[in-house]
Design a protein around this nucleic acid. Sequence first.
RNA 1: GCGGCCGUGGUGGAAUUGGCAGUCACGCUGGGUUUAGGUCCCAGUGGGGUAACACCCGUGGGGGUUCGAAUCCCCCCGGCCGCACCA
Length: 962
Amino acid sequence: MSETNPAAASEVAAPHRYTAAMAEEIEARWQDFWEADGTYGAPNPSGDLAGDPALVARPKKFIMDMFPYPSGAGLHVGHPLGYIATDVFARYQRMTGHNVLHTLGFDAFGLPAEQYAVQTGTHPRVSTEANIKNMQVQLRRLGLGHDPRRSFATIDPDYYKWTQWIFLQIFNSWYDDEAKKARPIADLVAQFESGDRAVPGADGNARAWGDLSAAERADVLSDFRLAYASDAPVNWCPGLGTVLANEEVTADGRSERGNFPVFKAKLRQWNMRITAYADRLLDDLEALDWPEAIKLQQRNWIGRSEGARVDFPIDGEAIQVFTTRPDTLFGATYMVLAPEHPLVEKFTPATWPEGTHEVWTGGHATPAEAVAAYRAQAASKSDVERQAEAKDKTGVFTGAFATNPVNGEQVPVFIADYVLMGYGTGAIMAVPAGDQRDFEFARAFELPIHCIVEPTDGRGTDTSTWDNAFSSYDAKIINSSNDDISLDGLGVVDAKARITEWLERKGVGHGTVNFRLRDWLFSRQRYWGEPFPIVYDEEGIAHALPESMLPLELPEVEDYSPRTFDADDANTSPETPLSRNEDWVNVTLDLGDGRGPRKYRRETNTMPNWAGSCWYELRYLDPHNSEQLVGPENERYWMGPRDGMPHGGVDLYVGGAEHAVLHLLYARFWSKVLFDLGHVSSAEPFHKLFNQGMIQAYVYRDSRGIAVPAAEVEERDGAYYYQGEKVTRLLGKMGKSLKNAVTPDEICAEYGADTLRLYEMAMGPLDVSRPWDTRAVVGQFRLLQRLWRNVVDEATGAVTVVDAEPDEDTLRALHKAIDGVRQDLEGLRFNTAIAKVTELNNHLTKVQGPVARSVAEPLVLLVAPLAPHIAEELWRKLGHTDSVVHQDFPVADPAYVVDETVTCVVQVKGKVKARLEVSPSISDEELEKVALGDEKVVAALGGAGVRKVIVRAPKLVNIVPA
RNA sequence: GCGGCCGUGGUGGAAUUGGCAGUCACGCUGGGUUUAGGUCCCAGUGGGGUAACACCCGUGGGGGUUCGAAUCCCCCCGGCCGCACCA
């Protein structure tokens, strides 16, 4: 390294040249200064971080990154991309009159930290804290202007105390559908006690609250609580040894982390009733300044569908279906229930009805046998297999018939795995003529297909000749009438409205909205997560720990690794690491509920790694508050609603797009609960979201396909060689496993942190992925060297800047740069901002003689957000004694932003034929006259007359010859 | 299958949103400084063409709208991302 280090030899010729060694010295010195000075401390209105009222009085900016996992691998140059971007933006905001909150914490619970700890054999807390320290050292080297007083890790008991506190808030509340907000569960109990609200009974009959046992009351409340335990089928992943949320399972039925198969299993688990917020989560997206792609993903995930619920009578009861196409009810020729639908047993008869078709029975002697066999087969399949077989429609007849409410027809009831229990009512009416899935099933089981929409593609109404279902919103409904109603001749929209009205009038159905979103599975069988502040009494009733018992800290256990299983073995069940510590699990406590000291068993699940990141933006605001998760005044100041931000929130949140339906959805949900309960004034956590792209890197593979160390690959004549052997090159992720990681440390060692910051910002637009190219970094280093040289004499170290009037060209270059850089930084277009700084700097390099102070100083200020260390150093050299961080960002003089003359392009038939130097204020008429008189234009016209002239003064004239 | 985004020099990328295609940087070529390599400095660099101009071609391909298209519309090709038996 030292031989190729530009620092070494050049020092002889130019002892005061800006070199890597000098950069390192400057950077370390200013980082120490900032730390000692508390330069980046943002004052709060109140509390222990209250400060300078003049600064507090400024408009605020809360600028945040998605905080990192402190993994043991350390950082590569891809990680800090977003941190550098927010830092540049935060510095710019500080220089334009804002009180800026910018800090960074650590998301330290969860699977990666635990797995790393398992691998290295050390306690997760020990390895995690070591990793945090290591990462802090790496990050400090980059000169990020974070407020260190506000940093924390989610594993700090002072922090997770409040994560647990929020859980209890959610546990102790319910969603009032009328008020459309969460309310304390005590309000619901009061309604039950007073009789204002009927107590729902298992058999549908109302009961008196006072007559219920404690266990019965707990069961009733559990159906309302926003955090509740249930036995619903969950995603069980034996390979990881834990259950997972829907959001953590990939489309092909595998765990997002580890890529293990996932099975459906009935296990008692904690859930969060995020579905109660489906409509608000959808509606409030409108006012957020987020990338459309992420909004769209959330909309799709929430999956709002308008339709109707319709009852199909059977044996004096009914099977309810959800459909988005109630207008096709007359074409419903059979029904399908999900295999696990609870009504299946109820209606399954003892024997097959007379003459049941052989293909319907699956060869089984009785319906019960057929159903049992099909269910067993469905349950044994992993989602992966189920997915793979999606093409073939399977199912079995239950032996039962229900009544189609519009035409009284008896329709057979099937179970099939193409209907999912988790969506709608878990039951559908099948309209094979209009739905491709139903069509395939009907063909496989020889079921009737009634044409109820007139085909517009010429296929005719004889469905026996059809190859697929027909569906079109432009077609007319046919064959759809009874004595009471006719949809015939109507379009889809009108038919839907009419049939829905009819269903409601007859009391057999109603219009409704259905959501795809499911409740959030919130418990994990892990050690390294927040323990639930929940205990169970001897009756098995869950009780919340009182706030005074928080934080409930993780106990020491012999073995904190999760129990994992053969990844393909569905017949396994989870084991929680915390359950191994009997002393911790079995406790005698006085919960302060008047029942005195009693024996309890602690909940041994832990919270998912998303819990800590669901509210961390709030803790940055008031990190040491021991009374409240955040003081209201501080919360309102930094997060409260204001003009253009009706729900409040963080001013800028930068991070990867991979959290679209995970962290970003969960955090919005918690935000709304806390808002409803009056703990915060912001109903949204993040007003503006920006997704940074990924820094990619070339991956070189040998003939066996194995990645070889990228740093040792040589290029010759467009081909790549590793140890003489030819290798292939592809663009991929950067990382240790692909042997192409480049660390910030090595770039800092070779060029300094300012160069690294500039390079990462100059590579391209922040939201686009682009390949890392170490050899291109030198370009930004050269920029800083030239900048240095424009202020400092390399041989003597003396400042060369003079107090003289700059020339007109230089003034224009300066003010155009100021104007452009301001606009670009405002819009997070760091790459073009740097190009403009470079242009100005190159201009000064080319101009003879020393640089005027009135140009050098604003130039240093322009550079300050991007390369803060060299800017501080030059600012000091220019004679200032204060830090550059809080200087005012230069303001462009409009008089110099426009050129004295502009180049006007004269086109003939759209091709450029001449260029004119004209005044920017020239009139269209004048410009046309000048253009037509230009000799090159006259020559290009060659005597032809002029048919038309388009003038866009002062930039362009286009002449169309006759 | 459905939905979304994107294709510009050898490379990363600019283009005031319909008005000079290629800002800035890497790389490359030539020159200077240097004992030499590297660093550093200067110049050139879309392709064809020319001694040099001129001129011609050019934003994945094809068509269209327009005085004028990288930008708008249609078709095709290629790539990336999301969802996916959601009734």
